[in-house]
Nucleic acid binder design. Sequence first.
DNA 1: TGACATTATGACACCGGTGTCACAGATCAT
DNA 2: ATGATCTGTGACACCGGTGTCATAATGTCA
Lengths: 336, 336
Amino acid sequence: MKKVTINSVATYAGVSKKTVSRVLNNEPNVSPATREKVLKVFKELDYTPNPIARGLARNRSFIIGCLYDNPSKSYITRVQSGALEACHKHNYNLLIHPCELRGDALIGNIENLLMTSRLDGLVLTPPFSDSVELIEFLKKKNVNYARVASAIEDDESISVRSNDEQGAFEITEHLIELGHSHIAFIKGHPDHSATEQRFSGYQRALSAHNLTFDDTLVAEGNFSYHSGADSAKAILDINPRPSAVFASNDYMAAAVLKLATQRQLKVPEDISIAGFDNAPIARHIWPGLTTIAQPVEEMTRQAVELLIEQIGGAQVQARQTTLEAKLITRESTSKP
Amino acid sequence: MKKVTINSVATYAGVSKKTVSRVLNNEPNVSPATREKVLKVFKELDYTPNPIARGLARNRSFIIGCLYDNPSKSYITRVQSGALEACHKHNYNLLIHPCELRGDALIGNIENLLMTSRLDGLVLTPPFSDSVELIEFLKKKNVNYARVASAIEDDESISVRSNDEQGAFEITEHLIELGHSHIAFIKGHPDHSATEQRFSGYQRALSAHNLTFDDTLVAEGNFSYHSGADSAKAILDINPRPSAVFASNDYMAAAVLKLATQRQLKVPEDISIAGFDNAPIARHIWPGLTTIAQPVEEMTRQAVELLIEQIGGAQVQARQTTLEAKLITRESTSKP
DNA sequence: TGACATTATGACACCGGTGTCACAGATCAT
DNA sequence: ATGATCTGTGACACCGGTGTCATAATGTCA
């Protein structure tokens, strides 16, 4: 099968390359007759333009990259789904690139990514959205990027976040108002800024209600189900047992629920459990998890929209947006 | 910031473009002194080659696309993870492209995808791996592709699958051997070939053990949690209630488990529940789900490996591989 | 009808690399 | 010493499109 290029089409149709190009891009100043003729040749020859050549000429790839290093698969799924929505709307494509935040390899890795697939822009999801090193590098390289759920504020770049601290405050307050005062907390991954913010929301709620913070009630997790299971063990062994547990995400909360159930504890009668994110698992298990709905898809969608605007050369205003998180109560929390 | 191209490097280093290109690609026949000199200029000018130009010259993008339309998010996550592993190993990148199987838009959509981002190859996941229309189109367009978990056998193209029929047979047999004879079944999405295969494995096990197939025990699902919840309602209302349920995937099984638990049924004492896939949720809930471990990551990894080989121009042998599925017993099944 | 604006088209350089080939100078076998 | 082979290098065409500009053809208005 011979390759069909713009040249063959031009020759076959008896016009110049440039005219073919005009038809291809729906440019004006082509007579209807010529346009018709060229379009017919497109069909006849089954012509498909070469995006690489086009990209070279226009200096665009129409591909956006998405960086992540996140133990929570559902978080990634939601990020992708939001990013894809924005991409497809503007005829962009999405390239996914998981890699590790830690280690010297990061910059080299990203450099290689940029080198092997010219991306028009990059979406940074946690924990990359807070990596000063990476951001410096991208600035230096003049790469467009947008940050999702980042805590860094003093930056001119595009950033869409949600109010984690406030969300954590509200869900903790919810537990307190139900009558809990002995509330354990499971932290997230130390590299993620959300970890600190959720923790601080928890602490703020305690002190707002005159409860003293007790660090023996705090377990170190990393957002993975597995780490949640470890933390659950530690927490359920505390004596006296906490009457409620607030885990920094739903996976870890699900792990607590599972262990509690295994140990014949009734949830929420014997122990209330709250999560964060409103991941699918929160409603796939029984009892359903009380949690904070974080608008992950929406954050990413907005970030990518802004990114595409910026790539298009627009002066993006409202670069820094904060969306609200919302309390969702389900069956896993109740009065002690 | 001025753009640094191969020309600037060449001028600056006092050599020809071609020599710079040689250094770039680690080609032989460059004197150590020259190589050194050029490398130094790379650093000084902070040069990054343009992958698009390279792609144009070499007719390669080093990007592979992954097509999917699957209600099970965890399935997609696993597909991606296997594909990424193979891609990164060979310095390829992965572009994800969810789209709908149904509707006339499909071919146009894929055509557009191919047009906007020249992909070196395409991974087709279910249900695309069984779409004759799509496969014909790709063949016509001379696009490299690999099929994952497809039921189509009479095709020369790369295909890696697992033995769904046998898996379904084994898990049904497992239930029968535990003593169940009144086993309900929840079908998957009608567009997926796995649906038919799992169903037929279920039927074969019944007849192998001289149990009569009863179609009032069969509910129609579509692999989504939601559809599982609907099917669960229907099944738990059957009188007499089945002593076991085999759902075509773990999400639907989880939905059955949730509803059963809500209705105060003990699992597995009152009713046994089995799933398929060994999705994360199968071990994130209590009781853990007995299921069939389908090597999704491994299938996709192998498919992409073969695809990359083929892109490289190799005559790929062993294009059609079948991996084994394995029974995993957890707490959700027991004697009736 | 002439002066001028507008529309349709093509020639050609260019995007930033890679492949082919020619060629000068070094190395080797006879 | 001489021809043959090998090594290092550059000139140049090419990949398949797009942008710029010149120019021919057509339309508009006084």
